[in-house]
């Protein structure tokens, strides 16, 4: 084996060997407190999320109720206008709109 090749192999082995020199790291003594804090934050985010999703549901419900009542009101006024129109025509021609049937003619 030539010298550069040997050098490369030696470098590879030395680099691979560094894994055995990595020392274990001690953890932060306040880790448990930090975890508790993180859990509290997550809970408050979850609660805020629940509150805001309830708000969205309520707003959607109000919107649907509003649209539905507007639609029913519109339908009612159209029917009322039609009834007034029929009565107006009947009185113009001297007919009783409520009692007139085809049998009378």
């Amino acid at each position: 084996m030539d010298k550069p090749r040997q050098n490369i192999e030696a470098e590879v082995e030395r680099t691979l060997g560094t894994v055995d020199d990595i020392q274990r790291v001690e953890s932060n003594p306040y880790l448990y407190t930090r975890i508790q804090e993180r859990m509290r934050q997550q809970e408050s985010v979850a609660v805020a999320g629940t509150v805001s999703s309830w708000r969205v549901i309520l707003a959607t419900l109000l919107f649907v109720v509003n649209i539905a009542s507007a639609y029913f009101y519109y339908q009612k006024s159209v029917q009322a206008n039609q009834a007034v129109g029929i009565e107006a025509i009947a009185s113009e021609y001297g007919l009783d709109a409520a009692e007139s049937t085809w049998e009378n003619y």
Partner: peptide, 16 residues
């Protein structure tokens, strides 16, 4: 930034 790696090994461990 591995606290378990000594300064002399830092470059080589980083490569690894």
């Amino acid at each position: 930034d591995h606290p378990g790696v000594t300064l002399e090994n830092k470059e080589r461990t980083k490569i690894l």
